[in-house]
Design a protein around this nucleic acid. Structure first.
Length: 488
RNA sequence: CGGGACAUAGCGCAGCCCGGUUAGCGCACUUGGUUUGGGACCAAGGGGUCGUAGGUUCGAAUCCUACUGUCCCGACCA
């Protein structure tokens, strides 16, 4: 047994770390709080990125790139915004090093102090809105629909690979609109796009909702979120879309002339998802044998293992099958490594979450069949080589659907409606998961609940039906249930 | 930033309490051979400033002090 991972039951955090490491997704780095994303982990991110990028472009957005550094003065222009990020910013104060006159090594050259310090972007609203001011003159310049793929830095106390790192990769969309309504629609449209993406591609169902005032993005009027439920019963915020009102337009004086030749402030949105999605993917589907990937995001969808070794006849047949699959758009790897035995390879590909494994040996060739193993259920079947391409492409769809259904069923089974605070606490302590409860819509109650239960108000679901009830904490009237959970 | 644990080869660990030749084991790696349908076996080999800096001592992986880092549990957060 070369590689083993801690079971989820034994230690969920350790299980997660083991998967990240042993599936080859990421390593710790020499820099505290920062990870190295390894090729296999990055390949998953690329799949996520490419699909989202396509969806953004289909909805009229274009990509651009803004600077990593933000003048300190920019960050202080929007009061709530700076308050939200001030505690976790990396600051550049100097621009030069020099040899240490007292010994070996280098020191910061005290002569090279910057006149104005630069902040490493924790998010780009300020630099972008200072730029948009110059780009927008007329209603004819609107809407401005721009996205950027970038890295950002938030100096977090405690980090975990993919879920929270000091530096992470993301996309941030920043749009400007002539009317409030159009901006609100944009924020909601992206919110829907995110939900569609996570469900269709990540096979991860999400609850769509609005954040409470307390949980809202610093500087936003409304924040929409997609909340996913992880296997340990904790919620994970997987993406947010913000309606920013005219807050940034006012802070950066971004105005335009409307059709009546009147000057107006523009209406704004911003929205983003991060490499955290890779963490979400891990914690939604994986099991005690390793990573489980949905076919639509798997860097390798099918691996063919010649058994017992890659002999020429087997490889020739494997290539024939692989070419058939590739013609259908399936990514296939033929394992040509002859230094490892099949059993080792099986375990390895299971650890890496490859959705389908085909085992091809002389015995199979003689019987005109092949061994098909699916990662999600670990079932194995001997399947005729005739029509194998169709069989596998259908199986990939089936796995994708099965993962979504499994995650959805898990969420259903771990979503509990409660009507009093005793039940609320009991469910969170025993079962965990999502809790749907009535809430009186005050921040005071929200904070009390958080203090007493560690559960946070994840969102006010957009599809929650109107339902008369009383707040589980205060007993005051409420018209709909909201979503609480312990969260990452 | 609080509470706890840990730091010895790429990874996982033993040795430390009770200081004493050349610091050991498993996995991984290299070479050769035998194997090969679920993590092969045999043999030979390479790889270490024992986290860093001080201190005690004739002598420190081992004892003392400080620092740094990592992990787990909290608080903060995508």
């Amino acid at each position: 047994m070369a590689k083993e991972i801690t079971s989820r039951a034994e230690n969920y955090s350790q299980w997660y770390n083991d998967i990240v490491k042993k599936a080859g997704l990421a390593d710790n780095s020499a820099v505290r709080g920062c990870m190295v994303i390894k090729p296999y982990g990055y390949a998953i991110w690329e799949k996520i990125r490419d699909q989202l990028d396509k969806m953004f472009k289909e909805t009229g957005h274009v990509n651009a790139y803004f600077p990593l550094f933000i003048p300190k003065s920019f960050l202080s222009k929007e009061a709530q915004h700076v308050e939200g990020f001030a505690k976790e910013c990396a600051v550049v104060t100097h621009h030069r090093l020099m040899n240490d006159p007292n010994g070996k090594g280098v020191i910061v050259d005290p002569e090279a102090k910057l006149e104005e310090e630069l902040i490493v972007r924790p998010t780009s609203e300020t630099i972008i809105w200072s730029t948009y001011k110059d780009w927008i003159q007329s209603y004819r310049d609107l809407p401005l629909l721009i996205n950027q793929w970038a890295n950002v830095v938030r100096w977090e106390m405690r980090t975990r690979p993919f879920l929270r790192t000091a530096e992470f990769l993301w996309q941030e969309g920043h749009t400007a609109h002539a009317t409030e309504n159009e901006a609100r629609q944009e924020a909601r449209m992206i919110h829907d796009l995110y939900a569609q993406f996570t469900e269709e591609f990540m096979a991860m169902p999400v609850i769509q909702g609005a954040k409470s005032e307390n949980e809202r993005f610093a500087g936003a009027v409304d924040t929409y979120t997609i909340e996913a439920l992880m296997q340990d019963g904790k919620a994970l915020q997987a993406g947010t879309s913000h309606f920013l009102g005219q807050n940034f337009a006012k802070a950066f004086e971004v105005t335009f002339m409307n059709e009546k030749n009147e000057s107006e402030f523009v209406w704004a949105t911003s929205w983003g998802v991060t490499t955290r999605l890779v963490g979400a993917l891990i914690m939604t589907h994986s099991d005690d044998d390793g990573l489980v990937l949905p076919p639509k995001l798997a860097p390798i969808q099918v691996v063919i293992v010649p058994i017992p070794r890659p002999d020429p006849e087997l490889v020739a047949k494997a290539e024939e099958i692989a070419n058939g699959l590739k013609a259908k758009g399936v990514s296939v790897k033929i394992d040509l490594d002859d230094s490892k035995r099949p059993g080792f390879k099986f375990a390895e590909y299971e650890m890496k979450g490859v959705p389908v494994r085909l085992g091809l040996g002389a015995r199979d060739m003689a019987n005109n069949q092949i061994e098909v193993a699916r990662r999600d259920t670990k079932e194995k079947d001997n399947v005729s080589l005739d029509g194998i391409v169709e069989y596998v492409t259908e199986l990939l769809d089936d796995i994708q659907n099965n993962l979504l259904k499994r995650a959805y069923d898990f969420r259903q089974a771990n979503t509990t409606r409660v009507d009093n605070f005793d039940d609320f606490k009991r469910i969170l302590d025993t079962k965990g998961g999502f809790v749907l409860a009535h809430w009186d819509r005050t921040t005071e109650t929200e904070l009390k609940i958080k203090e007493e239960t560690k559960a946070t108000l994840r969102c006010i679901p957009i599809d929650a039906p109107e339902e008369a009830g009383i707040c589980v904490y205060s007993g005051k009237p409420s018209s709909r249930r909201v979503l609480f959970a312990k969260a990452y």
